[in-house]
Amino acid sequence: MSSEDRRLQMLERIMREHGYDKSALLEILHMAHELYGYFDKNLLNYISSRLNLPPSHVYGVASFYNLFKFRRPGEHVISACMGTACYVKGVEEIVSAIEREFNIKRGGSSPDGRISLFITRCIGACAMAPNITIDGEVIGRATKEAVLERIRKVLGGGVVEAR
């Protein structure tokens, strides 16, 4: 079975578990997003037809919430916490440094698609501000140097593997 079919099957199972309940839309979107990493129109159309919801409603809901992405993210995902504590402690400078070094804009991916940089809302680790998350791992009390170094390492590692 292709991974595509498997994902679809899992999505179908989740919808069945929720009894194709329209009110479980957000839960189902969560699952679909987890499976696919982002939403495209086909996926949303599929969900809308299975739940018998208007397509515009599904798109409206999915695009309302910040967590959902509508573009395929890069191989590595960096998210910078823009919570108050992180801002007060200078996360902005770190973000600008990442943007400069890797030719990337917040909310977007690098030209080669290897890394994406997202701004997230407070992740609640305020006492360790500023926080940068790289591929799911939180770096607390982050400094510009440490973060750049870590990203270089993550990217470098990728190159070695590719060989």
Partner: peptide
Amino acid sequence: HALDIKMRGKDSQIIIDIDDDWGSSIS
């Protein structure tokens, strides 16, 4: 319910179906 709003806040916009062109709307 062919129409809805996408995004939120200042970016809110009226959409048709899955943000399709009106001409190709199925609903």
